[in-house]
């Protein structure tokens, strides 16, 4: 996402310069689909694949939440809503796992992104994995736990 300058943050759909997170405004951010997909067209295929996988993961997780909430006040002998919720939670886990593995591997191999840096080095020009990536990693672990719990509940 052309992060050549310092204070540059890069997401799946927009990049920002000058520390947007601290200011809380999107004035210095650029959406990838602005100006007729100007930035999106130049993104590598693996990045587009991560965008697609994350979009499907969002849809799948919302479906599992919907069915999970629905199953709290609905019971039927014909079908088991817990198994359905578990299946969607498991699908979310698979999609997230593939997305973060692909992003992590490609960002490390092609852009030399790092998890932690040595304090003695000049950290101004080093690409680091940001908190959004780690939130996605946490969601992956939780979706696996949720799917196991729902399959356990569904079997009883």
């Amino acid at each position: 996402c052309d992060c050549s300058s310092t204070d540059c943050d890069c997401g799946l759909w927009l990049n920002c310069r000058g520390g947007p997170s601290s200011a809380g405004s999107l004035n210095n951010c650029q959406w990838y689909f602005a100006n007729e997909f100007a930035i999106e067209k130049n993104l590598p295929d693996w990045f587009k694949a991560v965008q697609g996988l994350m979009s499907c993961a969002v849809a799948s997780s919302m479906l599992s939440l919907l069915i999970g909430l629905f199953s709290l006040c609905w019971s039927s002998k014909g079908c088991n809503p817990y198994q359905a919720t578990g299946a969607f939670a498991n699908l979310t886990f698979l999609l997230l796992a593939v997305a973060i593995s692909l992003f992590g591997a490609k960002a490390y191999l092609e852009n030399k992104a790092e998890v932690l840096t040595d304090k003695s080095r000049d950290t101004d020009h080093i690409l680091l994995f940001g908190w959004s990536f780690w939130v996605a990693v946490g969601s992956t672990a939780l979706s696996l736990i949720a799917s196991i719990l729902y399959f356990c509940v569904g079997r009883n």
Binding site: C1, C3, S5, T6, D7, C8, D9, C10, G11, L12, W13, L14, N15, C16, P20, S21, C29, M54, S55, A57, V58, S61, M62, S64, L65, G68, L69, S71, L72, Y82, T85, A89, T92, L96, F103, A107, N111, A113, D124, H125, I126, L127, L128, F129, G130, W131, S132, F133, V135, A136, G138, S139, L142, S143, I145, A146, L149, Y150, C152, V153
Partner: peptide, 30 residues
């Protein structure tokens, strides 16, 4: 029961986490 409540909380946190990471510009930073 307790297991169902734990499971629904996990799904809820997963959904919120997925949406937050999907929409925020901090996957990589310089």
């Amino acid at each position: 029961n307790c297991l169902v409540i734990t499971a629904i909380i996990c799904v809820l946190v997963t959904t919120v986490g997925t949406i937050v990471s999907f929409a925020t510009p901090n996957w990589l930073s310089v």
